[in-house]
């Protein structure tokens, strides 16, 4: 086995394990820390895919900024141990098995599909320095419109936070 494949297997396993811990942990702070692990593992996967810029942004934005916010919120709310509620019967006997079935099915088809022949000879081929240039070309030329529309989306989020958090007079 070559080194990239070993690296991929390790990081993929860490990411999945982190995600499972994130859901199952009872202390919110443990969940938050598990999320850091997931984000870091994903960043390495991006690196392996030849997208160093995305990997760096992943670490700076998610593992850095957003995680700090999460931890602060948990601290400020002084959140205790999470309460457990029982599954409903329907969820237990129909939902969980069906969910697993869907997961297996998606995994099966992903493994057996020629994932975008177009991707293989298109976007994914470039690596190294050019990928940042390419990304900016995509973001500021081809996808300029959704990029700009996102600014309105963020404005909506700010406005919404303001409405919901403001003190009632």
């Amino acid at each position: 086995m070559s080194i990239p494949i070993i690296l991929f297997l390790v990081c993929a396993l860490v990411a999945v394990a982190g995600a499972v811990v994130l859901i199952l942990a009872r202390e919110p702070i443990h969940s938050a820390l598990a999320l850091v692990v997931v984000m870091m593992a994903l960043a390495v996967l991006y690196l392996l895919l030849g997208a160093p810029f995305i990997a760096a942004v992943q670490i700076i934005v998610y593992a850095g900024a957003i995680m700090v916010l999460f931890v602060f919120v948990i601290m400020l709310l002084n959140a205790g141990v999470e309460e457990r509620t029982d599954f409903s019967k329907l969820a237990k006997f129909a939902g969980v098995p069906l969910g697993f079935f869907l997961l297996l099915e998606i995994a099966h088809w992903l493994a057996h599909s020629p994932i975008g022949a177009a991707i293989a000879n298109g976007a994914g081929s470039s690596a190294g320095e050019s990928s940042t240039t390419e990304l900016s070309e995509m973001l500021f030329r081809q996808y300029l419109f959704p990029f700009e529309a996102t600014s309105i989306l963020i404005l909506i989020a700010i406005l919404g936070a303001l409405v919901l958090a403001r003190k009632e007079e």
Binding site: P146, A149, T150, L153, I156, L159, V163
Partner: peptide, 15 residues
């Protein structure tokens, strides 16, 4: 693009 539009309309509705 549709996703951004969907989120704009949804997040505003949640609030």
């Amino acid at each position: 693009t549709a996703f951004v539009g969907l989120e704009m309309s949804s997040i505003a509705s949640y609030v």
